[in-house]
Each structure stands twice: as structure tokens, then as C-alpha cells.
Computed example of a mutant assay.
Amino acid sequence: MSDLVFYTNPMSRGRIVRWMLEEVGTPYETVVIDYGRMADADYRAVNPMAKVPTLRHGETTVTECAAICCYLAEAFPDAGLSPAPGTAERGAFLRWMFFGAGPVEAAVTNTSFGWAARTPQEEGRLGYGSTARVLDTLEALVAAGPYLMGERFSAADVYLGSQIAWGLQFGTMEARPGFQDYVARIMSRPAARAASAKDDALMPAKA
């Protein structure tokens, strides 16, 4: 039994955490939770939100993709996926991780449902302002590459990069050339390919 237990479903944001686990390179146990079982009492005792992914590391339980990615980067520093605390690089790392968890997640989700601010005053009440502003900020960020932290690949690329990749795949994000080039670059990593293969193998068989 591994000290790391990963609760997921291959058709979920758990794919982000799977990639992070593969980058860390530490053995872990996978527990697949069917969507029909997520509200069961035994799983709600693990994650009361009845959602995946969830990570258990010994006696520690972590939920939310960004938090899990940050936790793994700090718990396994030899993987080199997070800058040292108290540095300028660490500040940038946290900035973009939480930009992904806040403005990007909200803007892309709202846009996919057809929700948008109608006036500048309404934009001012939204944490992300407008989807166009979010995408412009992202485009400038990836253009400075090759990675979000410059020359260094980090957990921010796993988390925020996955959001960009999903946005392109499902058409919820404009297919700007900079996004496409960046996604092609990060998804060619061996850990990204290994994670995708493992999740694809868990997908339900097509009738």
C-alpha cells in the first residue's frame, strides 16, 4: 500500500492530478470513483463535496486541483516542481496557480454556459472582469515561455496548462496560436503522456 491514495474518475479534473503525480514520480494507489457513487456516505467521509479528485497522504487529505498540485510540489521537493518559499519565483508561481483557480476557472465556465457581464459595472463585480481580459493575460504569459515560470517547468504548467489544453479541446477557449504551441510543448512530456495513457485505459468501453 502506498502512502498516497488518489481518488479520481478518468472523465474528470482528476486527470490534472494524475499528471502531477506522474511528474512527482512517487508510487501511488488509484481509487476510481464512479459518478453514481460520489454521494455515498463512505466517499463523502473522504470528500464532503462528493467530487473528485481527492488525495490522501498518510493522515492528510487534500482536495481541489490547485491545492493538490501545490501540496505535491511541496511534499516532494526533489521533483523540482515549485520554487523555494520566500523567493520572487515563488511569488510568481503562486500568482499564476491561483489565477488559474480563480479567474480562468470562472471565466471559462461562465462563458461555456453563455453567462457574461452586460455592463462595465457588472464586469467590475466579477473577479475576472471579462473573459477577453483573462485570455489576453494568458496569451501574454505563455508567450514569455517556454514555460509559465520561464525556463523552468513547474506545477503551474501542470495545473494551468491543463486548463488551457481542455479549453482548446472542448472549444471553451479561443484557439490562439500561442495557446496551441504551448499545449503541444507541455503535453509532449513523458509524464503527461503516461498520465493520459493511464486515464484513457480506465475510460468506459464504448458500446
Rank of each mutant, 00 (worst) to 15 (best):
E151P: 10
G91Y: 11
T26P: 00
T119G: 01
A66L: 00
P27G: 05
A184D: 12
F76I: 13
P53S: 14
L94R: 10
R37A: 15
N47P: 07
M97A: 09
T111E: 11
A195P: 07
S12E: 05
T61G: 00
Q121D: 14
M149I: 09
G127H: 10
G145E: 12
P103L: 03
G14Y: 02
G124T: 08
E64M: 08
M11V: 12
S196R: 15
A92Y: 11
T8W: 04
G161S: 08
M11E: 13
A191S: 11
G171K: 05
L148E: 03
Y7E: 02
M20L: 07
T63I: 15
A132S: 14
V52C: 06
E22C: 06
C65Q: 14
M20Y: 02
A165Q: 04
L81A: 08
G124A: 15
A165L: 04
Q169F: 13
A116L: 08
P48R: 01
R133A: 14
E29P: 07
E74N: 10
C70M: 14
V134F: 03
V46P: 00
D40F: 10
D42V: 11
A175E: 10
S130P: 03
V104A: 04
F93Q: 10
F113A: 09
R189I: 11
I16E: 02
F179T: 05
V158G: 02
P48N: 02
L160M: 07
T111W: 07
L4S: 10
I33F: 05
R18T: 10
A207V: 04
E105L: 13
A175T: 00
D199T: 11
S12I: 07
A75N: 02
F6C: 05
D3V: 05
I68H: 01
